[in-house]
């Protein structure tokens, strides 16, 4: 992790996520798409960031870059001090296993696995043994202790999203990336989820970035980043 030093020689903690003049272009059916253009953003530990903007403004692209799922066309992406562009695919995989948790709009639970097994999955993929106790603890964080042996189809939407949050936190990531986490939930349940995310962000000192159309999410965030056509239009910090 890169450490800066202040004038007094004391180490300055770097942001958990730093996007420096990042652009992302790709081709769709032969047509160039400029998803992000010269975007710069720093996110600190414990910061709850809401990414807002119309569909197609680059929210998901930003999340993918932040989550080491993709490479930028230009600029730098530093995740917990590690530059993602210097890594190969195996390196990115390692980085994700250690630092990143994902939460999706449609929950993305595996229906063939129980709740416990869904939550444990990232640790098992990382080759860790006996993750059951950790999974139990994480389910406790999201107040689903008694449902470990159920299957996703036996849960409500809100419960499924909580399981997804527990899974995203199983490996104590530095950053949580949530793409429309309340998009498939009713307002009440959605608010509960957002409140849960904010609490966990604070308690676990992770950074959370939520791409959202939800006004409630925007109102709960420490930082509101408004995107437009791949650029940051406005950053509001509270």
């Amino acid at each position: 992790m890169e450490l800066a030093i202040d004038a007094a020689g004391r180490p300055i903690q770097m942001p958990i996520l730093s996007l420096q003049d990042v652009s992302k272009d790709y081709l769709t059916d032969g047509q160039p798409v400029h998803a992000l253009s010269g975007l710069s953003l720093n996110v600190e530990r414990g910061e709850f960031v809401a990414l807002v903007g119309r569909s197609g403004c680059g929210k998901s692209t930003l999340l993918n870059l932040a989550g080491a799922m993709d490479f930028s066309t230009s600029g730098r992406v530093l995740l917990d001090g590690v530059s993602t562009s210097s890594l190969k695919d195996s390196g990115l995989t390692q980085l994700r296993r250690q630092r990143v948790g994902f939460i999706f709009q449609s929950f993305q639970l595996l229906h063939t696995l129980t709740v416990f097994e869904n939550v444990e999955l990232p640790l098992l993929l990382a080759g860790k043994h006996n993750p059951r106790e950790v999974a139990r603890e994480r389910l406790g964080w999201v107040e689903l202790e008694g449902l470990g042996d159920r299957y996703p189809h036996q849960l409500s939407g809100g419960q499924m999203q909580r399981v997804a949050i527990a899974r995203a936190l199983i490996h104590s990531p530095s950053i949580l990336l949530a793409d429309e986490p309340t998009g498939n939930l009713d307002t009440t349940t959605g608010n509960v989820i957002l409140e849960l995310l904010r609490r966990l962000t604070r308690e676990q000192n992770t950074a959370t970035i939520v791409a959202t159309h939800s006004i409630e999410a925007a109102s709960l965030a420490n930082t509101l980043v408004r995107l437009r056509d791949g650029k940051i239009e406005e950053i509001t910090r509270r």
């Binding site: 989550g67 799922m69 695919d89 195996s90 995989t93 994700r96 296993r97 994902f102 999706f104 993305q108 595996l110 999955l121 990232p122 993929l125 990382a126 899974r167 490996h171």
Partner: peptide, 16 residues
């Protein structure tokens, strides 16, 4: 493909 893509998000390597 969605399930397989999800596994990559969750930290699965291509070999896995």
């Amino acid at each position: 493909r969605r399930e397989l893509g999800l596994l990559r998000f969750l930290g699965a390597a291509t070999g896995q």
